[in-house]
Write a protein that binds this DNA or RNA. Structure first.
Lengths: 168, 168
DNA sequence: GTCCCTATACTCGGATAGCAAGTGTCCGAGTATAGGCGG
DNA sequence: CCGCCTATACTCGGACACTTGCTATCCGAGTATAGGGAC
């Protein structure tokens, strides 16, 4: 089992978007540059956030991405489901219905015990993710990230905005 | 995110092995036939169970697989980790250390908040799986599976053993 | 009749192809902006 | 001086290759068994 890199990228992007000055948007290319990841592929991930209604995309100059709602109302689960897909990790293929002991399909009521146990565990996983919001992550980041890095990040973001304005 | 089919197969195989008469072993080919899955590939999965010490493999005629310890002492988590690997689903690539705001590596203490949140959720998932044993699954199966199917399965397994004995 | 030896056939185990999904990239459609023009 | 129009350049969005890991398969090594032969 493996969670794609896109989830990690999306989560980090959300924390960055959460600390942007109100109304400001950040283009996908800048987000990619900020995190040191391929811009072309990150675009795909951000697109998923946009489709899920987590982020908002603005076209044209001064456009980019910004959060669609307050960071406190965006859970980590929302991000994971948006990027990684909402399907369950475990997929029951109903192998109990195959082989020599199989009986008429109508006899099987509800999912088998193994599937239920696996899905129950996934529910616990989702509950835990749902309990963490982007604002929680931001708070944690502000408290634990080296001060020097916070300053660098803030400076860089401000610089991006300054360049965008000066170009006009 | 996706859990391989091998996990489902392995779990079902464990429940079958758990209800075998004491001392009896079932070859991989028969387990595959019983579940209607490719024998050659199931062998790979059973090998993983063997390596993890969950199942015991016996070579030669009358050989096959059997559980290495009582079903009550085998958790669903044991099976999942054995087949799917023990790595965490989420892998932190430390993208916070990349890009323009990165600082000296020594400044980063412990994993970032996002990784911690993801791993915390995985812990909840594992705890849930660890709370379910193979014997629980067997019990559930005996209670919920159509009686006709239980009878068919038992007959089939008995028939396999009879054929093996008669061949000598 | 009992013990030992050998040949057998059945088992697992690891090395080897095929395929699907995730990863990475590109170019075209759409839009807010900025400057120029007319009133 | 103000408002409108047009050209521009920047943005996102979806369509297109590539690589990794899962799926599927095969053949060889090892072993308990069963039968035959010797004692």
């Amino acid at each position: 089992m493996r969670i794609g890199e896109g989830v990690e990228w999306a989560a980090h992007c959300c924390t960055v978007l959460a600390v942007l000055p109100t109304g400001q948007a950040l283009p996908a290319a800048r987000l990619a540059e900020f995190h040191g990841v391929p811009a072309a592929y990150l675009a795909k991930t951000l697109q998923a956030l946009s489709l899920a209604g987590i982020a908002q995309s603005l076209s044209g100059p001064r456009g980019g991405y910004r959060l669609a709602r307050p960071a406190m109302q965006i859970s980590l689960l929302d991000v994971v489901l948006a990027v990684d897909g909402a399907d369950t990790a475990f997929r029951c293929t109903e192998i109990r219905r195959r082989g020599p002991s199989a009986v008429a399909a109508v006899s099987y009521r509800g999912p088998c015990g193994i599937a239920r146990a696996m899905w129950k565990a996934e529910d616990a996983w989702r509950r835990e993710l749902a309990a963490t919001s982007i604002s929680d992550l931001v708070e944690e980041m502000l408290a634990s990230v080296p001060e020097r890095q916070l300053a660098r990040g803030a400076t860089w973001i401000a610089h991006v905005e300054i360049e965008r304005r000066s170009r006009s």
